[in-house]
Nucleic acid binder design. Structure first.
Lengths: 152, 152
DNA sequence: AACAATCGTTGACTTTTTCAATGATCCGTA
DNA sequence: TACGGATCATTGAAAAAGTCAACGATTGTT
């Protein structure tokens, strides 16, 4: 992503109609958010994406790599790298698919769950400050709207 | 961003708590949205970013490149490329800054405004279909929440 | 006048994304 | 059962995007 300063910027340009373009708003919020999230996760050797993979590995849903790729909007080869990294660090394991032996199921290790719990706490705190200008209700509303936009 | 299929995916993994993580929701909606937006803009030789620059050039706000970089969360060198491209195609012009002669103000040409109008119509139609699962009210709510999250 | 800071630009460098090819496996069909 | 086409994880290469430091020109400050 681009270079973000943590300073408050004067959004002179937000006056333009583009300031209401959903695509741009998403891009901007995602950009600034990613930067902060990655910073918060760095303490645990994670980034937004590896954290997402780890979260799903810890979920008990036993996702396959293909499912991870679809859900996270990543190329399958990118998932390979992410899982490689997490596996080398002993946070997740590859297990053989149950119905499909081609597929590999990603499951967390005890250590993975330990790290994940810590990282999640840090990330939640980080996101809380990011959305500090929203009330608790608005925060929940935003989540609900994003989910509905994605999955109806 | 990653590879998106236009098919509807079964979000088995959305059940995980991560399905409520704002960071991931933003990333995912942004990813799928970008893909569709870029596809819609391709007819006009534009992409999300060059469209944003063109929009601001057409806004009458006379943005400098530095302001574009800040507002669009881009590195100044990326703005150079985007403006180069638009300028070569005769859609925008670089004008000397008024108070500051180091700065360059980006303004649209008549052709730029013509293309922009067409592209904007196409993009709006595209975003309408993307957010089809939201009601008109929810759509407006989402915009408002994103703006508030960004600028309070 | 001197100095540090900022603007746009360039170029090098790293990271990320994209894509095609591969072996293993699955599934439908003859 | 055996064949053929599709899907899975993986690899590696190529393309695109992002990052960063340096530069001349200009600004504002001391």
């Amino acid at each position: 992503m681009g270079p973000q300063s943590t300073e408050v910027e004067t959004p002179r340009l937000a006056a333009a109609k583009i300031g209401s373009d959903v695509g741009l708003l998403l891009a901007k919020l995602h950009a600034t958010g990613s930067l902060l999230n990655n910073k918060a996760l760095a303490d645990y050797g994670l980034r937004e994406r590896s954290f997402s993979v780890l979260t799903l590995a810890c979920s008990g849903l036993e996702p396959t790599q293909r499912e991870l790729a679809d859900f996270l909007s990543l190329d399958p080869s990118q998932v390979v790298s992410l899982v490689d990294d997490l596996e080398h660090r002993g946070l997740v394991k590859r297990a053989q698919g149950k119905q499909d032996r081609r597929a590999k199921i990603i499951v967390s290790t005890a250590e993975g769950r330990r790290i994940h719990n810590k990282a999640r706490a840090g990330l939640e705190e980080c996101e809380r400050t990011q959305l500090a200008t929203l009330t608790e209700d608005e925060n929940a509303q935003l989540r609900a709207l994003l989910k509905k936009a994605l999955w109806g």
